[in-house]
């Protein structure tokens, strides 16, 4: 078992099976680097993750610890390789499993929690979690107005009015898409 600590003061710690925690590439690499130390006794601090988010992460990795590992494709470097194989290098369509659909904090008031979760998944390199979360957000903003997307993602419009007008003109072709 491995202990994970949140960044709260005082930290909240969670005990997770090693198999589950290794779904995080970040932690897995760390554990491999520290081979020989008794990691069961050393809590791992996660400076970027708060307790509610970490709780979600733990819940997710425990649920998915027995998933078959994703097929790792050798990453084709785009600039120096022959382009012919890169053409087939299309990632498969992401499908959100039923359990995960219920798991994701998808209520509108929880959206900041969702974003925190995704950021944590990104920091901890839990690709499948990141994929389904990103897919959820993308579906959410699909077909929405620019203003709605800004509001949803807490973004600020950093264009000058002139820039915005010019850009609108540039992408006018995509209106019917």
């Amino acid at each position: 078992m491995i202990q994970l600590c949140s960044n709260d003061d005082p930290p909240v710690s969670f005990t997770v099976p090693r198999k589950a925690v290794e779904l995080s590439k970040t932690i897995k690499t760390m554990l491999e680097d520290l081979e020989g130390f008794d990691m069961e006794q050393t809590p791992i601090p996660l400076p970027n993750v708060d307790a509610p988010t970490l709780e979600l992460i733990v819940k997710w990795v425990e649920q998915h610890q027995d998933d078959p590992p994703p097929v790792e494709k050798p990453r084709v470097e785009d600039d120096d390789s022959d382009d012919s194989d890169a053409d087939d290098d299309q990632e498969p369509e992401v499908v959100i499993p039923e359990w995960d659909k219920k798991f994701l904090p998808t209520d509108d008031e929880q959206k900041n929690q969702l974003f925190k979760l995704l950021n944590a998944a990104n920091y901890l390199e839990i690709k499948p979690l990141l994929d389904i979360g990103c897919k959820y957000v993308a579906d959410k903003i699909s077909g929405q107005t620019v203003e709605w997307v800004r509001d949803y993602l807490n973004m600020e419009n950093d264009y000058t009015p002139e820039e915005e007008a010019k850009l609108k003109e540039e992408i006018a072709w995509a209106e019917g898409l």
Binding site: E91, E93, V94, N112, L114, F115, K116, L118, N119, A121, N122, L130, D131, G133, C134, K135, V137, A138, D139, I141, S142, G143, V146, V149, R150, L153, M155, E156, N157, D158, Y159, E164, L167, K168, I171, W173, A174, E175, G176, L177
Partner: peptide
């Protein structure tokens, strides 16, 4: 605080989100 993948957006949405920021 959020990560968004634009990969699953349709081409039309992909072009339009440029206006966000």
């Amino acid at each position: 605080g959020a990560c968004v993948s634009l990969r699953t957006l349709t081409a039309g949405d992909l072009a339009r989100v440029a206006l966000v920021c």
